[in-house]
Amino acid sequence: MRTPSPNDLLVVEGLDKAFTLHLHGGARLPVVSNVAFTVARGECVVLGGPSGVGKSSILKIVFGNYLAEAGHIWLADGGRFLDIARATPGEIVDARRRVLGYVSQFLRVIPRVPALEIVAAAARDAGLEARAARARAAGLLARLNLPERLWPLPPATFSGGEQQRVNIARGFAGEHQLLILDEPTASLDAANREAVVGLIAERRARGAGFLAIFHDDDVRGRLADRVIDVSMFSSREAA
């Protein structure tokens, strides 16, 4: 086993994942095998490769959302490393509050909660007191050009792009050291893509690392330090 260096935020090694479908005669659906890569402080690592190759699955495994069948996912937390592949639920909940963030492709929230509250709640989870959390939420929504008249409204009726900006604001509301992004700019126009690129650059300057999927070539070209072709880990025939 490789010893993580102090500059590592994430060290993934020997990661295997397959789904066993018990309702379909125990069929095995292999996803990825022997995945290994690192993300350093301030680095933006992009997962590339064709659709169905397992990019999103890797993000979900790193976040603890999918179960790793083998391997290690060492996440830096202060001076120590937590192995997400073996961590208890309590350790993962705690890591997600402070260190490990995730911006999904779609917003998932409690119905009828206003947009500003959704973002402020994420800031409170990260340890800000109520007033500071609301101020940070407002700042993020403003930067992402969400019209202020929408802030007190729940996002259910917002457009796809507006919902995604609430989602991004929520993902950036904390001070997570490692942020996982699954196509965060997919439904955004050019101006809002710029805003997201700016947010990412600022966080990187403060030492945060990113593990991301970007389909937009322009965004990818500007942000990626490295692109890892996931095909080399894929257990499936490329689509």
Partner: peptide, 21 residues
């Protein structure tokens, strides 16, 4: 048993898979 979103998104036991699906 486990982390809620892990159990619901990547259920391992046959019964959990049935429940979720």
């Amino acid at each position: 048993s486990g982390l809620t979103d892990r159990v619901l998104d990547d259920p391992q036991a046959p019964y959990t898979q049935l429940l979720v699906s």
